[in-house]
């Protein structure tokens, strides 16, 4: 193969690798559990992160006129193996909401209350911690343990 080809190929590859690494540094989110987030250094806390936790049903408050929904999520393990050892996601979620000592996080989300925002649902929130200690979620994804087993195949769902 000609040298110019190799050079051009390497050049493109290096540029793309640079893009990959630098974008991960600037625009990718940390994916953390609440405990991990609490343990973060002060200067990292303002960053955009993704948190996952179990929703406490009683804490859900919805103001339809803004619209804005506030709720509290509690610590669940982030590691899949740990979840499986504890008996699956549904069991982990049920345990988390009944554990008064679990780390908590108040979340505010500007938007309509999603149907799936229920007691014991798993919430994945993307956003950042505000100075007042409330987590401001730009995105809110929910998984319900009861529907979790519903069987849409991968290729149907995109």
């Amino acid at each position: 193969m000609k040298r110019s080809y190799v050079m051009a190929g390497v050049l493109i590859a290096v540029a793309v690798l640079y893009l990959l690494v630098s974008s991960t540094g600037t625009t990718a989110n940390f994916f953390l559990t609440i405990e991990e987030f609490r343990a973060l250094d002060e200067d990292l806390r303002g960053r955009n992160v993704t948190l996952s936790g179990a929703v406490i049903g009683e804490s859900i408050h919805y103001d339809a006129s803004i619209p804005e929904v506030t709720f509290t999520i509690v610590q669940i393990p982030g590691d899949r193996k740990e979840i499986n050892v504890a008996g699956g996601l549904a069991a982990v979620l049920a345990m988390a909401v009944n554990n008064p000592d679990a780390a908590q996080m108040d979340v505010v989300y500007r938007g309509v209350r999603p149907d799936l925002l229920q007691h014991e649902a798993q919430a994945i929130v993307r956003g950042s911690l505000q100075p007042n200690g409330v987590f401001h979620a730009d995105d809110l994804l929910l998984k319900c343990p009861s529907r979790y087993a519903e069987d849409l195949p991968a290729q149907i769902e995109d």
Binding site: A15, L19, S23, T24, A28, N29, F30, F31, T50
Partner: peptide, 26 residues
């Protein structure tokens, strides 16, 4: 990315649409 970064740096990073736009756009 979450799996890879966990292995490499011990912390999960997640790539959102912004990440993909930035990387693939050029």
């Amino acid at each position: 990315l979450p799996t890879v970064t966990e292995l490499l740096v011990g912390r999960r990073f997640e790539a959102g649409p912004e990440w993909f736009d930035r990387v693939t756009g050029p």
